[in-house]
Design a binder for these strands. Structure first.
Lengths: 215, 215
DNA sequence: ACATAAGTGGAAGATATCTTCCAAGTTGAA
DNA sequence: TTCAACTTGGAAGATATCTTCCACTTATGT
């Protein structure tokens, strides 16, 4: 359920160490589901009943922890993109894919942050985006050709819709956990019917858009 | 340009102190325009060439600084809501109001953060919301009656659109400062044409949505 | 010019988090 | 059982920011 690092010929952990590792993964998963990816290591250690040293030895970089926690979920989302790209109806594929992805994000604030950034857990998420971007671009091109999307629609617009709905999700998670569905309806309806005049956004806007824009 | 606190019978500042106060306001305004409301006091002091003590004596709470910096801008936005509520065409009033407000937010990241939160500078922003909320609600009710908005549309949906577009604005400010206009087109088109089935969101969702959902 | 009230810079203590390190405890092969 | 290697908890140093405080400087009325 929490994924394994695909590490090379590392010797297996001592039994007690392996037990602690699993305990930390479960604890970290739960904490990040409600508090996001930035939970202090100290909180994880305390909740798991271990010392911070243990967390740091097992996961020297936060990235190592994120990889171990979320790689399976990320794979799931990639497979959604693949399934979607095989839809005959491109628009149906697009909406299904976005809804599935957001459904996953709704399960965990941390996972949502991960799927909407490219800074955190770089390798993991970047590879996922590399795999999914062309699939989504293909769907959008098909949908435009089929007249299901306005002529100017681009993958960046789809990314913007994702970011918009994700923002509402993060803002409303604690008091209206389903509000994002309404926002999704609004945003997708808009994407489908908007008159998109003016220059289409650059392609590289997508990457920027998915990067953390911190303080 | 930066507004004055409406303080009571405070004795006027010594000339050098008043000069420093203005300097700090100008400096803080510029820093917050690019870095947001959370700029460290130390950065403000350094950029203004004063010590931190000076900042703290003049603005003991960050709120005092925000009030002095932004109250005029907030008043402007309130007046936009008042103007909009006088439009004959309710939908035109709504879109005009939201665009004006976002235009203001686009000028300064800090101001945008302020207008989309109710935590920061509480009194100032809360009063503004209290004034504007009924005006917007009236416009929405009128637009629904006129068939310009779907039957289920609520003020919370309008707030969600605001939050969505503001999120894109913050994420893209540095590399695509006009991308929010495209997001606005998409979101408003969606609001106008979406089929909003399901329970309408609670009224108090609006307040929550506008609150910082921090770590 | 002087006295004094007002103002100033920046050091210092508090808090939150990250990260390293090691004395002490535990495991498992011989 | 023994012991080398592995693992552990948490103290301690580093960094970033907030906030207070005071010895020293400056402005202004007389």
């Amino acid at each position: 359920m929490y994924g394994q690092r695909v590490a090379e010929p590392e010797p297996p952990l001592r039994r007690d160490a392996e037990r602690n590792r699993q305990l930390l993964l479960r604890t970290a998963y739960d904490l990040m589901a409600s508090a996001g990816l930035d939970v202090p290591y100290e909180d994880i250690a305390r909740a798991a009943g271990t010392g911070m040293g243990t967390v740091y030895r097992r996961f020297p970089q936060r990235q190592d922890l994120l990889d171990a926690l979320f790689s399976e979920h990320i794979d799931t989302v990639i497979s959604f993109a693949e399934q979607a790209s095989r839809y005959d109806d491109a628009w149906a594929g697009l909406t299904w894919f976005l809804e599935q992805q957001l459904e996953v994000e709704a399960q965990s604030r941390g996972l949502g942050e991960l799927l909407r950034s490219r800074n955190q857990a770089t390798a993991l998420v970047r590879r996922a985006h590399e795999r999914m971007t062309p699939l989504v671009a293909g769907l959008i091109a098909r949908a435009v050709r089929a007249g299901q999307l306005p002529a100017g629609a681009t993958p960046a617009d789809f990314a913007a819709v994702h970011v918009m709905v994700g923002g509402v999700m993060d803002a409303s998670r604690s008091f209206a956990p389903d509000l994002w569905r309404r926002a999704l309806t609004i945003a997708l309806t808009g994407l489908r019917h908007a008159e998109l005049s003016g220059d289409p956004p650059d392609e590289n806007v997508i990457d920027h858009l998915y990067n953390d824009q911190k303080r």
